[in-house]
Amino acid sequence: MPANRKYLTTSTHQRIAKISAAIIGGYLLSTVIHLALASWLDKATVLITSTFSGFILWVVLMILAFLSRNGWKTWGIYLLMTAVFAGITYLGTTYNSTI
């Protein structure tokens, strides 16, 4: 049974934005979340857990990218969250580094 056409994205730009946000944006966000966790928690534990939880988080972020109506808004949210978690990573490595 084919999908109902009224629910499909007709714009090529939106389709490309959703696909790239799902693959690239989801991967960047899941990676930087685990980097932020590693900068504040035990690095070995986060590294071991991130092999499984990183993939699961990436798949969840892929699904969320395709559920949205606007692919550019999804890109904006993913990039904003990536910047926030990159800042948390920077703060964690600055305050938790041993000199």
Score class of each variant (00 low, 15 high):
51 T>G: 00
51 T>H: 01
51 T>M: 04
52 F>I: 14
52 F>W: 06
52 F>K: 15
52 F>S: 15
52 F>P: 08
52 F>C: 12
53 S>P: 14
53 S>L: 15
53 S>T: 12
54 G>C: 13
54 G>W: 03
54 G>R: 05
55 F>D: 07
55 F>V: 13
55 F>E: 08
55 F>N: 14
56 I>G: 12
56 I>K: 15
56 I>R: 14
56 I>S: 14
56 I>W: 15
57 L>Y: 06
58 W>F: 07
58 W>V: 03
59 V>Y: 09
59 V>N: 05
60 V>I: 08
60 V>T: 08
61 L>A: 13
61 L>T: 13
62 M>Y: 15
62 M>W: 14
62 M>G: 13
62 M>K: 11
63 I>E: 11
63 I>H: 11
63 I>R: 15
64 L>W: 05
64 L>D: 12
66 F>K: 03
67 L>S: 10
67 L>V: 13
67 L>F: 10
68 S>I: 02
69 R>P: 07
69 R>F: 12
70 N>P: 03
70 N>E: 02
70 N>A: 10
71 G>Q: 03
71 G>I: 03
72 W>K: 14
73 K>V: 06
73 K>Q: 09
73 K>R: 12
73 K>D: 05
74 T>V: 14
75 W>Y: 10
75 W>T: 01
75 W>I: 08
76 G>R: 07
76 G>P: 06
76 G>H: 05
77 I>A: 04
77 I>N: 04
79 L>C: 00
79 L>W: 01
80 L>K: 10
81 M>I: 05
81 M>W: 11
81 M>A: 12
81 M>Q: 07
82 T>F: 02
82 T>M: 01
82 T>G: 01
82 T>L: 00
82 T>C: 00
